[in-house]
Simulated assay, not measured.
Amino acid sequence: MLLLVGGAALLVGCAALSLAAGSRPVPLTTVWHALADGDRSRDGLVVTGLRVPRTVIGIVVGAALGVAGALAQGITRNPLASPATLGINHGAGFAVVVASYALHLTHPAQYLPFAFAGAALATLAVLALARRAGDLDPVRLALGGTVLDAVLISWTSAVMLTSHRTLDEARFWLAGSLAGRQTGILLPVLAPLAVGLLLALAVTPALNALVLGDETAQALGVPVAKVRAAGGVAVILLAASSVAVAGPLSFVGLAAPHLVRKLVGADHRWLIPGCLIAGPLLLLAADVAGRLVLRPVELEVGIVTALLGAPLLAFLARKAAR
């Protein structure tokens, strides 16, 4: 419990840094006056008009990805599983790009149904690849997700290259970004995010038994198929919602569960709440780093998470092989 409280305090500090840091640094006192007193100075408007929405969106998206990653690793018993490594993120992204190309969509609220459809189809495809030789195997699952991810990225690039309009509309979104968005973008995804989180909390007690193996879990009275189905739906809802809002962000869902597991252990009753904090903490930290590392130029947060997450994935894969 103390670790969760400490993590929440760290998240508050990171959110304050997100409001203050950037190409135009703003003192924390000005940040406070902008939030408390409605400071209408130039710095105050930068805080309330640009950085508050960016920070709120980062917290919501990071929490969704963190919980989705913990669920994906729990229901598949695979430490490499996450919405990104299972192809879910780029499945949603590919569906959105195709819909944008064919239907001339321009607003994230319009992306949502296509993001859900793409995420669901990508999940089913990965599961089919993993079950081809029998039962669901963690190694085949990771391999199938990686292969599908590469295919979807190439298909997405092909669609974008056929249309300059689609390329202009989708390229920054596909990089994964929190910039230039207002909090109203979250309204269409609040309901699916809430359902996904409730499903995650509902299956959390059963995940501890599921980690022991299907036969052991069934002997303990856990309905394995129902738990996996509910957990899978929760992962799709959480991941697709985050993709619709911020684009396909990599490695947050992979890193957050491993970080929390090191601190609180493998009990999912603590792991899931911990990921609600660790996910936004990692995403906001990456966003702040992207603003500062090449200031005044900003790196998209998706680029930063990919740069930091690739070595982590290689380390985990090597550890799993051993």
Rank of each mutant, 00 (worst) to 15 (best):
I88K: 02
D43S: 12
H104F: 14
V67G: 10
H90F: 04
H90Q: 13
R40G: 11
F116I: 15
A92L: 11
T30I: 14
L80A: 09
H90D: 10
R51V: 09
A117G: 15
V98G: 04
F114H: 06
Q73I: 11
V61G: 12
G66E: 07
A72G: 14
L65G: 14
G69W: 11
V97R: 10
Q73P: 12
R42S: 13
H90P: 02
L121C: 13
R40H: 15
T55V: 04
T106G: 12
L50M: 10
Q110V: 01
F94R: 00
P113N: 11
I88G: 03
G58K: 07
H104W: 07
G44C: 00
A95E: 02
I57T: 05
N78C: 07
G69H: 13
A102M: 14
L50V: 03
H90C: 04
L86M: 12
H33T: 07
D37M: 05
G66Y: 05
V56N: 10
G87A: 10
I75F: 14
G93C: 09
A64N: 10
L71S: 14
L28I: 12
V47F: 08
V61L: 07
A72N: 11
L28M: 12
P53S: 08
G74W: 00
L103G: 05
H104R: 08
A109E: 02
T29H: 12
F114D: 05
P83N: 09
G118K: 03
A36Y: 00
F94M: 06
V46I: 15
T55K: 04
A115K: 02
H104P: 03
L112G: 08
A68H: 13
T30K: 10
T76L: 13
L28S: 07
A72W: 08
I75K: 06
L105M: 07
L28H: 03
R51N: 09
I88F: 08
V46Y: 05
A64C: 15
W32Y: 13
L121K: 04
T30L: 06
R54K: 12
D37R: 06
V97N: 01
V61H: 12
L112M: 13
D43F: 03
V52A: 03
P108T: 02
N89L: 04
A119G: 15
G118A: 11
A102F: 10
G118E: 04
L50N: 00
V46A: 11
P79M: 06
P108Y: 04
A64T: 11
A95T: 05
G66F: 06
T85S: 07
A72E: 09
A117Q: 08
Y101I: 00
P108D: 08
T55Q: 03
G38H: 08
T55F: 04
A64P: 11
T76S: 15
D43P: 02
V96S: 11
P108N: 09
A119P: 10
T55H: 06
D37C: 05
L28E: 09
V52F: 01
A72L: 10
D39P: 02
L86Y: 05
H104T: 10
G44Y: 00
V60M: 14
Q73D: 14
H33C: 02
T48L: 01
L45Y: 01
P53K: 01
G93A: 15
V67D: 03
G93F: 01
G44S: 01
V60A: 15
R54L: 05
G74Q: 01
G74N: 07
T29M: 13
F94W: 03
A36V: 04
N78H: 02
G91S: 03
A34Q: 00
